[in-house]
């Protein structure tokens, strides 16, 4: 009994620690060819002569099945995480103030002041424009800076890859010289798009729109031009240097004018910027020039992204 126990223990010990005795029914692996030097002897995976340790076998098993198991675990984990997050947030939403109710905490004295006094304090007919470019202008300045940061970062990462031979950039964009339909449409559409963009930018303080929306519209005109007439033709009036100069200058004007406004506001000095008559084009103090600056930045940056991603250069 004791010996049996011992042998079982020994077997188990060998199974765990390896290096057990050779079993009778062992199938030996084919002998390595004798001409191979000793050090290059192939690792015999299926030999039972030296029983592999548990760790070795685990590693072998992991090598074969690991990726599969890992991917299953991963998707299970994904679904679980997703469910936990969604259930938690749904439970939160169920307790939130009711949708569309006028007595919700968010409809407080702050909103009342924005709506009731915003028009004469900022001069803007569009309350949101007055809110983002006058009451909370520092946020919007930060937001334009985010765009600027992303623009210089993308320019740094992707810029100049057309001319440099270091990057094997695939030129997926094939420019065709004979696309009559595209060119015909572009001739008609580009002026309209440009005008539309300008209207949206300039009317930002009077109606829905503003620098961001208008700038995005303007950039589509540039992108259409690049597709119809090639990037070279856009590069004649909008290249990397002009992109950097226009973005920096526009953001600089924004920073300086808003800085002046912040400075006078905080120190309770009189600001020389007139508010104008609400509803006119030339009104709302700094909002109109700021919208134009933001429009320039956004138009340049969005076109810059497009050109950098498709051509590797602006």
């Amino acid at each position: 009994m004791n010996d049996e126990l011992k042998s079982i223990w020994l077997k188990f010990f060998n199974w765990v620690m390896g290096n057990g005795p050779r079993p009778e029914n062992e199938v030996l692996p084919p002998e390595p060819p004798p001409d191979l030097p000793f050090t290059q002897k192939p690792h015999d995976k299926f030999s039972r002569f030296h029983e592999a340790t548990l760790k070795e076998r685990y590693n072998q098993w992991l090598e074969i099945h690991g990726l599969h198991i890992f991917s299953i675990l991963y998707s299970a984990l994904s679904i679980l995480t997703c469910l936990v997050i969604v259930v938690l947030l749904l439970a939160t939403v169920a307790e939130l103030p009711p949708f569309g109710h006028e007595r919700n905490p968010a409809n407080n004295e702050v909103i009342r002041r924005y709506v009731e006094h915003g028009w004469h304090e900022t001069g803007a007919q569009n309350i949101v424009a007055g809110l983002i470019l006058d009451y909370r202008a520092f946020d919007t300045f930060g937001e334009s800076s985010v765009l600027f940061t992303a623009a210089v970062s993308v320019l740094m990462i992707l810029g100049n890859s057309r001319s440099s031979k270091k990057y094997k950039f695939k030129q997926l964009h094939v420019y065709r010289n004979d696309d009559t339909i595209l060119r015909g449409v572009a001739v008609m559409a580009i002026p309209v798009i440009l005008m539309m963009g300008c209207v949206v930018v300039i009317n930002g303080h009077l109606s829905a729109g503003g620098g961001f929306a208008g700038g995005a519209i303007l950039s589509t005109a540039l992108i259409l031009c690049a597709n119809a007439y090639g990037f070279e033709s856009v590069r004649r009036f909008f290249n990397e240097r002009i992109f950097i100069v226009s973005s920096s200058t526009a953001l600089m004007i924004y920073a300086l004018s808003k800085g002046y406004s912040f400075f006078t506001g905080a120190n309770q000095l009189h600001s020389i910027i007139p508010k104008g008559v609400v509803g006119n084009i030339l009104s709302a103090g700094l909002i109109l020039p700021l919208n134009i600056c933001v429009g320039l930045i956004v138009a340049g940056t969005l076109y810059g992204f497009y050109a950098l991603f498709s051509e590797g250069d602006i």
Partner: peptide, 20 residues
């Protein structure tokens, strides 16, 4: 009007981050 302003900021941030 405040959420509209926040959404505008969010959109710009999202565009920038996506491009980067």
């Amino acid at each position: 009007p405040v959420p509209a302003g926040l959404v505008l900021t969010g959109i710009v941030v999202s565009v920038s981050v996506t491009a980067f």
